[in-house]
Design a protein around this nucleic acid. Structure first.
Ligand SMILES: [Mn+2]
Ligand SMILES: [Mn+2]
Ligand SMILES: [Mn+2]
Ligand SMILES: [Mn+2]
Lengths: 235, 235
DNA sequence: ACCTTGATTTAGGCTAGCCTAATAATTTCA
DNA sequence: TGAAATTATTAGGCTAGCCTAAATCAAGGT
């Protein structure tokens, strides 16, 4: 006998999200750090799923209030969605840091392990790991770790590919997803914290030559794109 | 053009099992340590599922070759099933030991955490934890840890409830599943490694009085049933 | 031998997530 | 502006896992 006309029974956000949902939210966050809409096909590509699967999930998640979806335009996280996404980002990066620090993992293998563990750890365990690490601000790849309230500081970084010849900068962040690429970069000594100087750039998308720790290396343009640096000037 | 008459295409055991399947195998192992058949309703009760759900899963798992099922009689693990179950038991107990040793967990809270993590860790991570712990032989509840090949030594234990008045024995093992019960036992000092002497037993399923670390405690019969001891004689 | 009871299985249904094939909307470009 | 190409959605189907209700089997007692 409730006479108030309500909107047609919106489902509430469940207290525990599934592994799939958590990965979707994390992917959408990654695709739109500034909040611009993410496209169905970009999400599908990142998660290695078909576009119709993503369309279906996007519909469900927007009905749950985790996303705003404008058909044919893209999706944006709501506040609740962004909170949930940042919670996963914090878990992922803290787990990576913990495994490297305390269990001898290398930066090339931690990502795959964290991709599964992030869904299985409890909040108290995450916080115990954070405490054991001394509350680090970045993971082994240089990616910043949001605090427990979801606040995150993305340091200003530009691709190494964008440096000018003669410039010196510090490596800050490296894309974590390709283990082989990470091993190669480590073998060259191109890891976060290292100072690099651009010594040469070949035209027409050619390779660049960088100097780091006294050694010179010629690296291809797409590699130079995923290594992010902070230039001397950007303080 | 294959003319050989084959049995109707038995599905092979998948290389990765689902969380549900892993928990079923672990439950069946626990219900039949000696290999006697486990009943549908016991499995359902242990996993808190309906009996029809268990019937359905049992059918699938026996088609996969992980179980032998005699309808209306019960199930037994095959060699492959027991191997998979012991792998999960090893993971569960090593994770518990690791969390207690290195992350400040208590014996009352580790079980719930391990119940989820056991499905998410990789084999290499399990082995790294084992190495960090120095390859322990028992978890925080006194449960023995199978080795990486699945060999397990179940120490001879009897319920504290079975002791005779005047006997002295060492606490070896305590059922891990009820966090509140574990906290209570710890508050009485009744933990693995402690020597206890039975001082009194009331008839008709009444409580028993035990002496441990110089203190006497009166405990109910069902509690005395889940605390396992090794008597002096059982060496 | 039959009947009752409890355990078990079968029947039928639901959700979450994935897929492919077909359709529809949008954008691009001649 | 009007195809063509791209992107997205809808339609329909599948598996894994769970559920309740109904049917069936196994035992034990009379
Ligand atoms: Mn993940
Ligand atoms: Mn990382
Ligand atoms: Mn489990
Ligand atoms: Mn245990």
């Amino acid at each position: 006998m409730n006479a108030t006309a309500t909107t047609p029974s919106l489902p509430a956000i469940p207290d525990t999200l599934t592994r799939s949902v958590e990965d979707y939210l994390k992917a959408i966050y990654r695709l739109s750090p500034e909040g611009q809409p993410a496209s169905t096909s970009d999400i599908a590509h990142l998660l290695e799923l078909s576009a119709p699967s993503v369309s279906g999930m996007v519909k469900r998640l927007s009905e749950l209030g985790l996303l705003e979806h404008v058909p044919y335009k893209g999706v944006q996280l709501t506040d609740a969605g962004r909170r949930a996404a940042l919670r996963m980002v914090r878990r992922h990066r803290l787990i990576e840091a913990y495994l490297v620090q305390f269990l001898g993992y290398g930066w090339d293998t931690v990502h795959a392990e964290a991709e599964r563990l992030e869904h299985a750890v409890s909040d108290p365990l995450v916080e115990r790991m954070a405490a054991a690490l001394g509350h680090p601000v970045a993971d082994p790849h240089g990616d910043p770790i949001p605090d427990a309230d979801g606040a995150i500081h993305e340091p200003a970084c530009t691709p190494l590919a964008g440096m000018s010849v003669g410039d010196t900068a510090e490596i800050r962040r490296v894309d974590e997803r390709d283990a082989e690429r990470l091993r190669y970069l480590a073998s060259l000594g191109l890891v976060p914290g290292v100072a690099v100087t651009l010594r040469d750039r070949q035209p027409f998308g050619g390779p660049v030559t960088v100097e780091a720790s006294g050694e010179r290396h010629v690296i291809g343009p797409e590699l130079a794109q995923v290594v992010l640096v902070r230039s001397e000037g950007d303080r």
